[in-house]
């Protein structure tokens, strides 16, 4: 089953210029982990935003678990996003004024589906996820998110993206702020948890050293015919 199915996608921020995204076809099957790379400004983040339904693309269809996110508007789109996607940003993934546990549980707050998937006790599955991502200290769970190191923050972000078993995890350069060892450990943990929950993963990074851990590696430039190939 395809979790992501993109056909003849075109998007340009500025209609006067060549489209940033020009993807004729992109597919991702359930449980598949894809590594997306490309130079800065090539449109990687734009690509993820299109999948998340945050930007409305001018042409083409983007199907996530069978639904056309491009056709969804407003509330419905936001609901769909939290129900089916887990998102990890480059930095500053956490709300500093919430505890680690509360940050992890945020998707359950907004999505009934994620809450249900998280089991009868979402907190328990949150702590389980945090523990398996290497954060097994209850003191950390209940402490403020702002007290964590950057590496720890990214792992909390991963736990949040994974809680309640979303269909796809989108990660936009989650490792760029981490040092070499932490980076590899983070990717291993993330992949392990994705595998455990059965989620597909779109992992954007320009760090090619991580590429071989994934099922597949895609250069956005080759995917993106109309992209910045120069």
């Amino acid at each position: 089953m395809k979790t992501i199915e993109i056909r003849s996608l075109q998007h340009s921020w500025d209609s006067a210029q060549a489209p940033v995204l020009n993807v004729s076809a992109f597919d991702l099957v359930a449980g598949e982990h894809v590594f997306v790379h490309g130079p800065s400004g090539s449109g990687k983040s734009t690509f993820l935003s299109a999948i998340a339904g945050v930007i409305k693309v001018q042409h083409g269809a983007i199907r996530v678990v069978g639904s056309d996110v491009g056709a969804m508007v407003g509330r419905k789109c936001d609901r769909f996003r939290v129900d089916h996607l887990g998102i990890i940003f480059q930095v500053f993934n956490l709300l500093p004024w919430l505890s680690v546990l509360e940050n992890t549980l945020l998707p359950c707050r907004f999505s009934a589906r994620r809450r249900e998937n998280a089991g009868p006790d979402p907190t328990a599955s949150a702590t389980r996820l945090l523990s398996s991502l290497g954060l097994d200290d209850p003191k950390i769970w209940n402490g403020p998110a702002s007290a964590l190191s950057v590496g720890q923050q990214q792992r909390v972000a991963a736990a949040r993206a994974l809680i309640g078993a979303p269909d796809v995890v989108l990660a936009d350069e989650p490792t760029s702020a981490l040092d070499e060892d932490t980076k590899e450990r983070f990717v291993d943990l993330l992949l392990h948890e994705c595998r455990a929950s059965g989620a597909s993963l779109v992992f954007v990074s320009h760090d090619r050293g991580l590429e071989n851990r994934f099922d597949r590696s895609v250069d956005l430039r080759s995917l993106n015919d109309g992209g910045s190939n120069d």
Binding site: A52, V54, G74, R75, D78, R79, R81, V82, D83, I87, F89, F92, N93, L94, L95, L106, P107, R109, F110, S111, R160
Partner: peptide, 15 residues
């Protein structure tokens, strides 16, 4: 702004 982006990523609508 970042807070809002995070909230939106976890399903908060602009409303």
């Amino acid at each position: 702004r970042r807070e809002f982006a995070i909230l939106r990523s976890v399903g908060a609508t602009p409303i």
